[in-house]
Design a protein around this nucleic acid. Structure first.
Lengths: 200, 200
DNA sequence: CGCTATATGGCAGTAGGTGTCATATTGACA
DNA sequence: TGTCAATATGACACCTACTGCCATATAGCG
């Protein structure tokens, strides 16, 4: 069932505010722009901004991760193949946002710069990853995986492979396609990682 | 060369503030206690509090992770055996703080409750882990490990194994010793994790 | 067309955090 | 031991993120 008018208006308004905010951030820097300025530039009251996003950093957590996560995750999730799931979702989002191989000034990669460079934004995304991890852990546990195993595995993929790939991709200047990094990252976990005699 | 008097006074003052703060947190809850109240109860000005800890959450990032990390890491770090290094450090800190097997109301485990239960505190610790990860990645790279491999490995151990173990340990009521969880967590990464053909 | 639910804006207030300057304390050195 | 420079502290003013509350407007439905 499609969205009601109110919901569509709400999403459109949020999108507009996000774009407006990113323009201001790109011009003056993240911390130099106040919520009041964003709200004014977008033509809403500060109070409305907070109703939409909760916090200044909510601009990023709402859009990039949560929204994408909801739709794609539901249809792509395969609890028996976490690396594959991650790979498919990232590839899908990346391809949609970067059709020509170039990452344009587009959602959801436009704001990624601030996710990786602004500690406050990064922290907000970490919290979003925490929530996602909690749901995935619950799903894995309902399939009989032990708590510790489920938790460590999910967190290793989200915080290690996914965010690590994102970070390295950004640090390398966003030249090579992001899915390549995710691929490599998964390979690291697939074989006993980075030491001579593994655990012990 | 040992610490100068100023440094020792500073550390003592910080310790006192931390203990005072934890008392207040335990009594009224983290978010219900203001920095102003902590400062007043500890007998310092709010300005001094911020000079010491930077933020309210700095109470946790400064003590638990950074301080321990500096001393122990330097002597325990073995870049060829990350899981072993993690295991030794956690075991060492855990044994020192819980000599009898019980985790007393002691640094650095006393505040751990808020690290795991208060999102703002958790985020601050994540940022501390980010810093530590960056240093470890640099060290690994200088040994010839590729960037992606180094980053994913380090983050998988810090955010996956270490923090995941901490979280599960806390969720389980802190009954079993923490090092056991770290041990199990490392084992998860040591063999290809969480997909159809291995685990479960 | 009118009614109800929901969305918005304005206002006042709380709390976290910083720059600045004056004052006190410390530690080194004569 | 007394003096002086370096450093630590406190007081004040200020900014900004964020919230509760209430009045008002707008959308959607019968």
């Amino acid at each position: 069932m499609p969205l009601t008018l109110r919901q569509r208006n709400r999403l459109a308004a949020m999108h507009h505010i996000i774009e407006t905010a990113m323009d201001l951030f790109d011009e003056h820097g993240y911390s130099a722009v106040t919520v009041e300025q964003v709200a004014a530039a977008a033509g809403v009251s500060p109070r409305t901004f907070y109703r939409y996003f909760g916090t200044k950093e909510g601009l990023f957590a709402t859009d990039t991760h949560a929204a994408v996560g909801q739709d794609l995750l539901a249809e792509q999730l395969d609890l028996d193949d976490l690396p594959g799931t991650l790979q498919r979702i990232v590839a899908s989002v990346y391809a949609a946002a970067a059709p020509s191989g170039e990452v344009a000034a587009h959602t959801p990669w436009r704001g990624m710069r601030y996710v990786l460079e602004e500690p406050a934004v990064r922290e907000a995304v970490y919290t979003a990853l925490d929530d996602l991890a909690e749901r995935l852990v619950a799903a894995l546990r309902s399939k009989g995986v032990t708590p510790t195993q489920a938790r460590v595995t999910v967190r290793a993929y989200l915080f290690g492979v996914y965010f690590g790939a994102l970070e390295q991709w950004h640090l390398d200047g966003r030249v090579r396609p992001l899915p390549d990094y995710v691929q490599q990252g998964s390979a690291v976990l697939a074989r006993p990682p980075a030491d001579s005699n593994s655990s012990r």
